[in-house]
């Protein structure tokens, strides 16, 4: 029996379809409103330049050690895994071209975005979630500061600006790792290696990677901030916000990757 059934203050809730479906549609509508609000607020003063720079530092500079390590290992491992297949056809001289295409087109944006989703997205979800449940966001609001602008807009801008830069950096570090592997096994010179790397890349590759990483950065920022900014239910909610931020951002990154690759291939 419902313990509140005799409480005159409680009215039965009516759902349009079912609770679960209603919740899904409401969440989608909420996210749409959240993104719309971002685009409205981003152009209106006051501009939080100091906070944007601080967040760029947090997202970009503080991710460098992890990104460097992962990028380097990706380059080395991918080269070492590709070599035997090419060696079977006596085509190891094609390694630099193969590696550059794989790294620039797919590996660097994906690896960077997934790591950022885990590190930056969860951090945003937990930080904003904690601020929400401890009423720090309300405190900002009542002291006549727009918390959406200060907390959300600055973070989304930071991820949107910094993820493309991190992707470039990851690509560079991965190519350095690949060069080290190629040089050790094939004695290819640095100039030769990078000449082949750049010869095999087109403007479309660089453009699609830049576009893709900007979309990934925006997604990580929006999802992390949305989950944190709307978290409820105390400390349990903070954990859920951090977790949802990572899971949802990673899922969306894969979906966006598929869609963008399909579009780019249509132009190739």
């Amino acid at each position: 029996m419902d313990p509140n059934s005799d409480n005159p203050n409680i009215q039965p809730t009516k759902y349009v379809v079912s609770k679960k479906l209603d919740d899904i549609f409401l969440t989608v509508y909420d996210i749409y409103q959240f993104i719309l609000r971002f685009f409205k607020e981003v152009f209106l003063p006051p501009y939080e330049f100091k906070e944007i720079i601080h967040q760029c530092y947090e997202v970009g500079f503080k991710s460098l050690p992890l990104i460097s390590l992962t990028g380097f290992i990706t380059g080395v491992v991918f080269t070492n895994q590709s070599r035997p297949s090419l060696a079977n056809f006596g085509a190891t001289s094609w390694l630099p071209s193969l590696i550059s295409i794989a790294i620039v087109r797919a590996l660097a944006p994906l690896v960077t975005a997934l790591i950022a989703a885990g590190k930056v997205g969860s951090n945003m979800g937990a930080e904003l979630g904690s601020m929400k449940v401890t009423e720090q966001i309300d405190a900002m609001e009542v002291s006549a500061t727009n918390p959406f602008k200060y907390l959300v807009v600055s973070r989304i801008l930071a991820t949107t600006f910094m993820i493309p830069l991190l992707v470039m950096y990851t690509a560079f570090v991965a190519l350095m790792g690949a060069y080290l592997s190629v040089h050790t096994n094939e004695q290819t010179s640095f100039a030769m290696f990078f000449s082949q790397v750049f010869d095999s890349l087109s403007f479309l590759d660089l453009f699609s990677t830049s576009f893709k990483s900007t979309v990934f950065g925006f997604t990580i920022g929006v999802v992390g901030c949305y989950c944190g900014y709307n978290s409820t239910k105390g400390t349990e909610g903070v954990g859920k916000a951090a977790n949802s931020a990572v899971v949802a951002a990673m899922f969306l990154i894969f979906v966006e990757e598929i869609v963008i690759v399909a579009i780019v291939n249509a132009f190739r």
């Binding site: 401890t134 009423e135 720090q136 405190a139 009542v142 002291s143």
Partner: peptide, 26 residues
């Protein structure tokens, strides 16, 4: 002015920064 039940101080800021925050922004 609104004084919250759990104080709602910004826990990443010092006391000085907590007090400066509304002042500087307004």
């Amino acid at each position: 002015g609104f004084s919250f039940q759990n104080s709602a101080l910004y826990d990443s800021m010092t006391v000085r920064e907590n007090l400066e925050f509304p002042l500087v922004r307004n």
